[in-house]
């Protein structure tokens, strides 16, 4: 990604195929977590086709990955609105090899608590916890300041903690 970013900075033409090979997995996962695996491939393809059309407008101010995820975010919203999709449910794997710490929270209760979050808080949690973005990158994807992301993630976790621990759901 860094190499591609540097190319754009020196105003060299960007190869959309190369960009797709580099970032397709990330974009696909991003889409799958929002509109489901079934439609993720279509959304990812539309994301790169849109990126191909507007690639000339990319000025390299933000990392290419963030720019692509921003396009993917809009594409997922458009598809969800068009097909009247519900938010994709969060899935957890039952893998005994993972760290014991991960079993400290009831996964089903966590999925239910996530489903009850508002769209903004849920989006912030997915971006930070699942997509692994920093607050600044998440703000760039959503088009909001990093401070707002920080606030949203704080309140989202307060809600989740209350749902999981304060109400006695703790495993």
């Amino acid at each position: 990604m860094q190499a591609v970013h540097e190319k754009s900075v020196v105003n060299q033409p960007l190869d959309i195929s190369e960009i797709a090979r580099t970032h397709y997995d990330c974009v696909f996962r991003f889409c799958a977590r929002r509109i489901g695996v079934d439609l993720a491939a279509d959304a990812a393809q539309e994301t790169f086709l849109t990126a191909q059309r507007v690639l000339g407008k990319y000025r390299g101010d933000a990392p290419l990955k963030t720019w692509l995820l921003g396009i993917a975010h809009n594409e997922c919203r458009r598809l969800a609105r068009k097909r009247k999709l519900e938010p994709a449910s969060l899935e957890f794997r039952q893998d005994p090899s993972v760290s014991p710490e991960s079993t400290w929270v009831d996964q089903q209760a966590l999925a239910q608590a996530m489903a009850k979050l508002s769209a903004e808080h849920r989006e912030a949690v997915i971006l930070i916890e699942l997509d692994g973005l920093s607050y600044e990158e998440a703000g760039a994807v959503l088009g909001i300041p990093a401070g707002t992301v920080k606030s949203r993630i704080h309140y989202a976790f307060v809600t989740l903690r209350r749902a999981l621990f304060v109400s006695g759901v703790e495993a």
């Binding site: 397709y24 393809q45 966590l110 976790f157």
Partner: peptide
């Protein structure tokens, strides 16, 4: 909570790169 998200959430397997 954060660890549960990061360690046990299913990571979707990407598909459709060739088509794209």
């Amino acid at each position: 909570i954060s660890s549960t998200f990061r360690e046990s959430a299913v990571t979707p397997v990407a598909a459709g790169l060739d088509k794209t």
